[in-house]
Design a protein around this nucleic acid. Structure first.
Lengths: 90, 90
DNA sequence: TAAGAATTTAGCTAAATATCTAAATATTGG
DNA sequence: CCAATATTTAGATATTTAGCTAAATTCTTA
């Protein structure tokens, strides 16, 4: 849970998630949307993987990253718990 | 938006929110649930206020803190935008 | 109005984090 | 196998952040 919130607390990482929402992308593709160096991006991707928010799969010389939306359910539940509202069961 | 995610990225601050979910509390009350010093807690409360998640009101020599759940709507919308799922309109 | 209680501010330190450079490790095509 | 391309690791630096102590502020009440 803490890993999840920590992962979301950075603008670059949230931007990565938005990019992966559209389609799966390899590291270079993601990198092309940022100014930072590949090693810095890799650091963010590691944190996202750690939190369960993204998954990666090696494909030839590329590594394809994809988003794992199931993890957001936890977050939504946490929020609704605090809001005191009822869950949608979908 | 960034302030919101940053504010939620700390366990102490999330615990404060849980405490305020039950009832409004003054700083001393909140403090009694932590080991940290009052000044440290105050720092967290400032960050929560900054993010809009909590509000404060001076009442005599106490300051009463309360949670502002409307801000969570933003967060929920952000999540659903990424999840690509439909909103509940409630 | 002076003392006491609650909270906040200011300034410091240590730990965590973001980013960089340089080097290492795949993987593929010639 | 070699060179080129893509990604990751290691190690350094700079910034941010959580927590502390001490002092300041605000409010109440004797």
């Amino acid at each position: 849970m803490n890993d999840l919130f920590k992962a979301l607390a950075d603008p670059s990482r949230r931007k990565i998630l938005k990019l992966l929402k559209d389609k799966n992308r390899n590291a270079g593709d993601i990198l092309s949307h940022f100014e930072m160096k590949g090693s810095s991006l890799n650091h963010h991707l590691e944190i996202l993987k750690q939190s369960g928010l993204v998954m990666s799969e090696k494909k030839g010389q590329n590594v394809i990253y994809s988003i794992n939306t199931t993890v957001f359910q936890e977050l939504i539940e946490w929020v609704y718990d605090i809001k005191g509202a009822e869950h949608e069961t979908k």
